[in-house]
């Protein structure tokens, strides 16, 4: 049985202009010890679907799902106190902006020890010892000194390491990393990714990596889910996806990678992601798709079988990427 199993997840936000569907019928499964990358542009609902699974969305959001289980527990009808026993201990999450994700009023040591105090039966001395261990594990130099530092006294990279230390404090089975490197310098990005994959391997935990960086995906993920405008449009093992993308959107994304460009001008995807008020009738990608026809513009596309990457497309692509993208 999968560690995390989400079937037909939808999230609606109540906005001033009516209800907005940010996530629409998304399935996510993660096995123990697997690294899943969720890729998509801003607004594709990749963060929102994970926040929904964690129960961290604001009160304006309505979450529905046919199935939402973690480690055999149904997260949908868990009482708040039972959910708190899972969240932070068995599933942990780190976020995009390490600077604003840590509370500015408390030392990082306090914030790490707090996670330990919440879920584990450790006394004061043991908590401090464990906090130091964790800080060492995530590569914070001179942890004894840093324990009493406030977040604003550390760099963004150091703060993200603190976030990671906090997240793995109770030995989670699944770690969700929501664009963990987006706000960091390029050199720090690589270090943080190495750290995450290293921890994932050593602890054998599941890792969901939310990102819009295809390079990151290629280096770290086992499997990739591509999201577009609240839909999951494709789901494949990483090698297959880079070799043979089945959804035109995935193919266009890959074609836009600088490493793959063959011409002087980088290929782009024309148009923008549809917003709340300009959602097309049929396939959401149809206005930007090079292959779209009348059927695409009028009828919702089906989900193709796993051999075709579960592509949500009327006409999934069959041939390897490089030729299709031209």
């Amino acid at each position: 049985m999968a560690l995390l199993n989400i079937r037909n997840l939808s999230v609606d936000f109540a906005t001033g202009g009516g209800s907005f569907r940010a996530v629409d019928g998304v399935d996510v499964t993660v096995e123990a010890g697997e690294v899943l990358a969720i890729v998509g542009e801003s607004g594709s609902g990749k963060s929102v679907s994970m926040l929904a699974a964690m129960g961290l969305l604001p009160w304006t959001a309505t979450v529905t799902a046919d199935e939402l289980t973690f480690d055999g527990k149904d997260l949908r009808n868990l009482s708040p106190s039972a959910r708190r026993k899972v969240i932070g201990r068995d599933v942990a999450m780190i976020f995009q902006e390490p600077m604003s994700s840590l509370n500015p009023c408390f030392t990082v040591g306090f914030q790490i020890r707090e996670a330990l105090a919440q879920h584990l039966n450790l006394d004061r001395a043991a908590r401090k010892k464990r906090a130091l261990e964790l800080m060492e594990m995530v590569g914070i130099p001179a942890p004894e000194k840093r324990l009493n530092a406030f977040p604003h006294q550390l760099s963004g990279g150091m703060n993200q390491r603190v976030m990671i230390a906090m997240a793995i404090a109770c030995g989670p089975k699944l770690l969700i990393a929501d664009e963990p490197t987006t706000a960091l310098d390029v050199t720090i990005q690589a270090q943080i990714l190495d750290l995450l994959t290293g921890l994932q391997r050593d602890a054998g935990m599941g890792l969901i990596l939310i990102t819009h960086d295809m390079g990151v995906v290629a280096e770290t993920a086992h499997r990739v889910a591509v999201q577009y405008a609240g839909w999951k449009v494709e789901d494949q093992p990483v090698k297959d996806l880079f070799q043979t993308p089945h959804h035109p959107y995935t193919a266009a994304l890959l074609a836009a990678l600088p490493e793959r460009a063959t011409e002087r001008r980088l290929p782009t995807i024309p148009g923008v992601v549809p917003g709340q008020f300009d959602r097309p009738q049929g396939c959401l990608f149809s206005p930007r798709c090079a292959f779209a026809d009348d059927r695409c513009r009028s009828t919702l596309p089906p989900v193709q079988p796993p051999e075709l990457g579960r592509a949500r497309c009327h006409y999934p692509l069959m041939a390897p990427a490089t030729e299709e993208a031209q």
Partner: peptide, 8 residues
């Protein structure tokens, strides 16, 4: 959000 993610 972080505090909530910690299960506090």
């Amino acid at each position: 959000r972080t505090a909530r993610a910690k299960g506090l």
